[in-house]
Amino acid sequence: MKQASARPRLCGKLNGKLLKTYRILSKIFGFKASLTTRRPDWDTPSKASQPVIQTPPTRAIRFRGRSFQALALCPEAPFDDWLKDVDAWLERSPGFFGGKPLVLDVTGRECNAEALSHLVKAFAARDIRLLGVEGADAALARAELPPFLSAGKAANFIDMAPVVAAAPEPPAPQGLIIEAPVRSGQSIVHPEGDVTIIGSIGSGAEVIAGGSIHVYGALRGRALAGAYGNPRARIFCRKLECELLAIDGLYKVADEIDAEWRKKPAMAWLENDSVKIKSFD
């Protein structure tokens, strides 16, 4: 008896999920299929007389249950005032809802067909797409409305802080000035901005900067400018004898640098995804 009573409950749960998926898929693709789709040739002769869904004798369509996390929006009456608040929010953080799966939760709200239709249209007008509607009376379902969802569970807290307001002002670019030669084996890393060296960069030394690199001396080691994604960074030096030049991850080794630039004052920059070099002589 215990087993018999336990089983339907389990089935009910599973079926609920599958049905939901089925309902969404059938809406999207506009087909009709049964959850118990079978190939006709599987049927035993005794069941052959039972009505079977007529599907072409191709392979079975498979459905799998999935649950996803979505952002539930709970409108408050009066809805027009609430929509104004949404607009104010969007002004502070444009694109906040962009790409986020969104569900309209009207649980406990007095929401007739007209109000629901008004809300859905209001979101469409703001270019916000709804994945579904939760907590509405099943009788209100219409083809032009998003699918009705049920059995939603609260998920992890989603940080609703406005994106733009929360993002701190990017720090002002700061230059680093080094008043000594960079010796072989030393590494200067400065992601915040430009690096200026009053002296030389020795063979086997490297300077990595978020911005440009200025060398008032010979550049014999490696210089990596714009190393954190800045294609407009440049490298300047009084004497080009480098082992490697790189800007925004694109590099040239000494072998690839034309002999005419060597031992001369030079500048390197990025053009069409390639490191260009020019002499100041």
Partner: peptide, 9 residues
């Protein structure tokens, strides 16, 4: 070059 390294150290 090795001397340059030592000067750094």
């Amino acid at each position: 070059r090795d001397s340059d390294r030592i000067i750094g150290l």
